[in-house]
Design a binder for these strands. Structure first.
Lengths: 233, 233
DNA sequence: TCCCGTCAATTGTTCAACAATCTCTCAATC
DNA sequence: GATTGAGAGATTGTTGAACAATTGACGGGA
């Protein structure tokens, strides 16, 4: 047996284990593609050619196809048999589905507010503060990512890593929808103040009202996207 | 243009389109493996050897690896770099995480009861009825699957296909946990009566009480699994 | 205009090969 | 006896090539 002190070192090391986990080539390729897709560099609906992409990234077709599989399961790509993979292009039913899911998950999570530890709560407050700071500097991209952080922090209140993962996927998909209709960043202005009011109500112990405000946010954002997408067809 | 009658044929055919969608070999392989894993034929923790499995199923390693990717994303398998894939073996933190997610999703979904159409409600009632019928015949496996159907029907109240998919994954993972501790089917007896009371309260318009009963179910099931899993180490 | 082959391009699938990595065994050492 | 190190064998990671199957576009003919 080791000493208690040695155990402390071991535990500390165990925390860093993640850094040691090498990733496969397919995962690294997926990382690169994911970034391109989420930044809108590869526009929704566009096909990803296996041969061309494989040569550009210097990986074999097999490895590239593994990366495609990963991103398809993240719903960033869609796979049509014998046709290839395309960047997902969310439509109106998709958006409705996504917000139905968000309403359930985030409203369910926000109710846990009184029960969770303060670290989780602080993450929610920090996200709003970050958004305010970014607005101060007219950094609207920053406001957008802060908004994503806010909703991830809300989800984290539930205390489920699996739910956090799913929310990450849902938000990524919504980002695609924004790209389809051409990201009008000024809308974040409204959302930011709404987030602020949600936190205020939470801190005032008015969880029920905070949930209502959250639902208002969802209604507004959903309508925003639905009308925006409807105009593109 | 075709006649209205021809359009009727077309619409009828369009419904069968799903059957025509060929699935890739990898997906069919994944289907077979999924069934084996969920039935407990391949026990949690066991490694899946690429060469041996590929020869047994008569598919190439590449195709098999694609199937592995699919099941890994469904959380039925875990992939360790340079080591291979293993049947997931949920532990106590996994179970806690899973139930945290279920609490949020299913409680959020059940609140939609007053708003949803009757078809969705009937699915919930049918699942309970199916469970009762199976118990009548001492078909405890059937009671188990009816219980799964019940919770899927609850989730479906939210009206999000994405949420339904996620719940399917969560429940599959829980099935693995049951296999780890050795499925004691008699426990379903309690769950069935609890489900019954949930439906009764819903039909009485007592949504709030139904949610409480659901939470009771989660607490009991979680404790059941946690103690069961704790005993295995 | 519509129908129907033809053909090039792309994807689906398999195979073989080699590199990288892990695991097990067996000594050697302290 | 416990630990360390080297080496062999097995398994996975990745690639490139090959061929079959499918798609989509092009153009000829009615």
């Amino acid at each position: 047996m080791t000493t208690a002190q040695a155990d402390g070192w071991l535990n500390a090391l165990a925390k860093d284990r993640g850094d040691l986990d090498r990733s496969s080539t397919a995962e690294r390729v997926a990382d690169k593609l994911r970034a391109r897709v989420l930044d809108g560099d590869i526009t929704p609906g566009r096909q990803l050619n296996e041969k061309a992409l494989g040569e550009a990234l210097r990986v074999s077709r097999n490895t590239l196809r593994e990366a495609f599989r990963l991103l398809t399961h993240e719903r960033l790509l869609v796979h049509e048999y014998s046709k290839g993979v395309f960047v997902r292009r969310p439509d109106v039913p998709d958006v409705v589905d996504l917000y139905a899911a968000r309403r359930v998950i985030e409203c369910g999570a926000i109710r846990r507010w009184p029960d969770v530890d303060d670290e989780a709560r602080q993450a929610v407050r920090d996200a709003v503060a970050l958004g305010l700071a970014c607005r101060e500097n007219d950094d609207w991209t920053g406001v957008g990512t802060a908004n994503v952080k806010f909703h991830q922090a809300i989800t984290a209140l539930a205390g489920s890593a699996r739910l956090d993962e799913e929310m990450k996927r849902l938000l990524a998909e919504l980002r695609l929808a924004f790209h389809v209709m051409g990201d009008h960043e000024e809308f974040y202005r409204d959302y930011l103040t709404l987030n602020q009011s949600i936190v205020d109500r939470l801190d005032a112990g008015e969880v029920r009202q905070a949930e209502e405000a959250l639902l208002t946010y969802f209604d507004r954002a959903e309508k925003h996207l639905v009308t925006g997408l409807g105009a593109t067809r």
